[in-house]
């Protein structure tokens, strides 16, 4: 099966991990890799939302260049040879996972998405069996003021999927980021309690795109909360069809 649909758009042919692949010229290396069942880990990326290149897990090598590139925002190019799994990349990915786990208070055993968590499963997939860096253990809030949902900042990895889905798909722009560096925090409106937000439509898209247990539905107990993502590609394709 050719993953490249018949289209007027020019096609590029190149290699990923030695395998010959092709993709439309507007596609990213990540899209091309996934279309060919080559796995590149990601946490901030979600098909249907804009890519920000923030988590740095999808960094790949291009032969002949010493610079690493994020696969989610790097366009395919004719003739390049992409390496997704060198020793160096494996080491860096594991370190990035360790840094994420060290940043806030990720206690899988008591988490509402235990067993349905992208952070947890990515750590397992990358073989991260412990975190060498000291846990920073910041003291962070839980905002449960919303009638249906809650946010536990202890579990937030600042991927900004909630910010993007709210802005780009729901177009409410309830979510944004405040502060900077290690003190960054996702907020609703102007850092008001979520339950008092005047812009929130209570659509729940943010909850469902959240890769961790940071955003969850109230009333779900530990390990009960599974996220539903089917709506996203559907909404995106419907919207594109309407624009055309």
């Amino acid at each position: 099966m050719s993953p490249v649909p018949i289209t007027a758009e020019p096609v590029k042919t190149f290699k990923i991990d030695g395998q010959d692949v092709s993709a439309r010229e507007t596609e990213s290396i990540l899209q091309a890799a996934r279309a060919h069942n080559i796995d590149i880990p990601t946490l901030c990326h979600l098909e249907g939302l804009s890519s920000t290149g923030a988590c740095r897990l999808c960094m790949v090598e291009i032969k002949g260049s010493n610079k690493l590139l994020p696969a989610c925002v790097t366009r395919v190019q004719e003739g390049i040879e992409v390496v997704t799994n060198s020793e160096r990349l494996v080491k860096y990915r594991r370190m990035i996972m360790e840094l994420i786990f060290s940043e806030r208070n990720h206690v899988c055993a008591v988490c509402v998405v235990n067993g349905h968590c992208e952070l947890q499963s990515t750590a397992q997939k990358l073989g991260m069996d412990h975190v060498r860096y000291p846990y920073l253990n910041p003291q962070l809030d839980v905002d449960a003021s919303h009638e249906r949902f809650a946010i536990d900042h202890n579990r937030c990895i600042l991927c900004t999927r909630c910010v993007r889905v709210c802005d780009e798909i729901e177009t409410a722009h309830t979510w944004d980021v405040m502060g900077r560096g290690i003190g960054s925090k996702v907020i609703t409106d102007f850092n008001q309690p979520w339950g008092e937000s005047e812009t929130c439509t209570r659509c729940g898209k943010c909850v469902n795109v959240c890769p961790t247990g940071a955003l969850f539905e109230k009333g779900k107990s530990v390990a009960e909360m599974a996220k539903q993502r089917q709506f996203l590609p559907y909404l995106v394709s419907r919207r594109e069809a309407m624009i055309e």
């Binding site: 786990f101 208070n105 206690v107 899988c108 055993a109 008591v110 069996d129 412990h130 975190v131 846990y135 253990n137 910041p138 003291q139 962070l140 202890n154």
Partner: peptide, 19 residues
């Protein structure tokens, strides 16, 4: 051998750390 999440990550006992 670090046996279980408490030995590996400090897990639930470490939930007092932020305070």
């Amino acid at each position: 051998i670090a046996f279980g999440d408490c030995a590996v990550t400090a897990n639930v006992p470490s939930m007092r750390n932020p305070f």
